[in-house]
Design a protein around this nucleic acid. Structure first.
Ligand SMILES: [Mn+2]
Ligand SMILES: [Mn+2]
Ligand SMILES: [Mn+2]
Ligand SMILES: [Mn+2]
Lengths: 232, 232
DNA sequence: TAAAAAATTTAGCCGCGACTAAATTTAGTT
DNA sequence: AACTAAATTTAGTCGCGGCTAAATTTTTTA
């Protein structure tokens, strides 16, 4: 019923809302790689459809109906990602691009069958929560690996799926959801991060990479370096 | 690269060519449920792209390039049908509609993974041959169940996937590829057909249904009714 | 073989979702 | 507070793939 374009806009607005309260035309345009004028155009259409509230020159916000639609698309997307990974061994840096297209064309019946096949999963391969059929979704507050102090260890909860090259790199290093990492040291001024993974291997992550990994800290292993939060 | 519309037109032309040498604008329009004017429009575009030869007022024909593209789409379609049936138990009357959409959005890599998962299959769930990656396809000459004489038996090779209600009915009766049917009797003037399936159950099929089932005849089981081809 | 019917193409239109260039509004700076 | 820069919207255009109505060509029928 609603076009793939409308679905992509709603999904983008939802994802931008996760970071900042209100979503600007420019942010939306950049996220979707289109011109600002095109974004304005679609925003006006979405407002007509009562899927967003538009405060001209100030930003856009999903209505309840708009958020529900966004979550439906997001559910499709993440179920498909996991399904491709599980059923066909598609590597996790490729599932996003495939899901971006397939999410718009599957029936509700197929969605249900995929969810059932996967045992009603709660996370996609990157650790992102899968919205429920009812239209709810978890919003766990993770910490960026960047903000973990030296000497602390943490469990990876999710990894940004935006950059396939980064994903490929992360899986090579063992930086995947549920893996434990020890932060060894941190260069000043947001410099690179030295980490050790469960296998014992040590790796250096620059700021951009570390920012794409979200974790929950575990209890500190070693006491000889107690300074953590205030450090750096 | 090429749009879903172009792909659907090419596929439609290919399938119409299987029955009649040349494909008319009207036949194409009916097949795709669009106006004749729209069909003409797209035909001219396809001709510009060298995917068809158009003889105005007389019909259209795929070029080698057009046929290759049609077969690529058809390969996607049939692999997806079989994959949905095998991996997710989607009933065979539903796989066609899903595949009709998904066929346009999967990558070549995903196509390869699906083919590999299925063990490079040769037939889709309805018995239709799956084109190879190289762009070739079998064109077996089956006989309609309608043309099998009383007393003969036959092995079902394929069943038309055009009508979901018919498919549902066929699977209920056990009329699926590789099943053996005995034709018991045939009413005159293309009247209904009485058949027995392997389970021993007997069913009556009207002309439309019988025409949708394609078979290869087997050796005759019983000699007391030797008249076969000339009978009816 | 001429007239009628059917098939096909042409002409003109529309909604969608993109674009650029120009106008407008808002935010930042001195 | 005025000026400037940045963000946003408006205006106008385009290609795509549909549509209807009218013109044209082919086929059928009388
Ligand atoms: Mn998408
Ligand atoms: Mn993901
Ligand atoms: Mn299709
Ligand atoms: Mn089929």
């Amino acid at each position: 019923m609603t076009s793939a374009s409308v679905q992509n806009y709603l999904k983008a607005i939802y994802q931008l809302q996760e970071n900042s309260e209100t979503v600007t035309t420019t942010a939306l345009a950049q996220h979707l790689d289109i011109s600002a004028a095109s974004a304005t155009n679609m925003i006006k259409k979405l407002a007509r459809l009562k899927l967003v509230r538009h405060s001209p020159y100030h930003g856009v916000e999903l209505t309840t109906a708009g958020e529900k639609m966004a979550l439906e698309v997001l559910r499709h997307h993440r179920l498909i990602e996991l399904f491709l990974a599980e059923a066909l061994d598609v590597p996790w840096e490729l599932v996003h691009a495939e899901a971006e297209k397939i999410e718009h064309v599957i029936s509700e019946d197929l969605e249900d069958r995929i969810a059932n096949f996967l045992g009603d999963p709660e996370r996609d391969p990157h650790g992102d929560p899968i919205p429920t059929k009812a239209g709810t979704v978890e919003r766990p507050e993770y910490q960026s690996l960047l903000d973990v102090g030296a000497g602390q260890s943490a469990v990876i909860q999710r990894v940004s799926d935006q950059n396939p090259e980064h994903l490929k790199h992360f899986s090579k290093l063992g930086l995947i959801p549920d893996a434990t990492v020890d932060v060894l040291s941190r260069e000043p001024f947001d410099g690179p991060l030295r980490v050790r993974v469960a296998s014992g291997r040590e790796h250096t992550l620059d700021e951009t990479l570390a920012r794409a990994i979200w974790v929950t800290p575990t209890v500190e292993k070693k006491a000889y370096r107690a300074k953590s939060k205030s450090h750096v």
